[in-house]
Amino acid sequence: MQFDGISLIKRYKNLLIIGAVLIAVGLIASQAYNYWRAQNYAVLIVNGSPVDLTMQLGDKKYKKPSKIYVSPGEYTLGFSRDNFSSTSRKVTLEKQKTTTVNVPLYATNEEGEKYFKIPANQTQAEFVGGLWEDETSTKFTNDFPIVRSLPITRRDFIIDYSSRGELENRTIYIRITHAGTLGKKNAEDWIRQKGYDPATFDISYIDISKIPIGTDEGSGH
């Protein structure tokens, strides 16, 4: 008994047609689902180091998270891995938008240190570390644009700052070291010229003309 290609097709014609229809329906359904998901969910991208960290999102745990579709809303994401520091991040995920979080975890013991001896893990750490630094610096300078121009030293005043706190609720303290009232005025004028109101900052003033030389006074906020 011989079977050539054409006779095979004829024999299973109906089956093939059904199969093709099913595949087409599957593809369309998949596309429709993807479209529906993209329209109704938020996208969360996680750049993690180590890459196989665990993310806690509500009740769910994600091992080695990368791209996840999540219902829009505010979340606190937890990140952890054995032998590494753990951290959390607050995010607001919006429908149809992609949010990226960069999460470098740091080794807390020798086992963790060993992990970074593997070149691929080192490069992942630097990849995430660079993105994280960009993220924090950008947020910080957007929250407090004046820091872009500090410190500033003039003949009769110095303005610098220190910073405290977590990423989400960071604060800065402005320190003005000045010589007499004119120095103070010039410092505040400089802040105004930059487009800011000195009254909106937490400023400590140190009038250097009133400090006896050789004391520790005026060492800062």
Binding site: T87, V103, T123, G130, L131, S137, S163
Partner: peptide, 22 residues
């Protein structure tokens, strides 16, 4: 430069606590 993200260029580094890194 930022690995996988950009070639060497300018940026503002504003000293701040890095709460991820002890």
């Amino acid at each position: 430069a930022s690995f996988g993200d950009r070639v060497p260029g300018a940026k503002v580094f504003a000293p701040h606590p890095d709460t991820q890194d002890p």
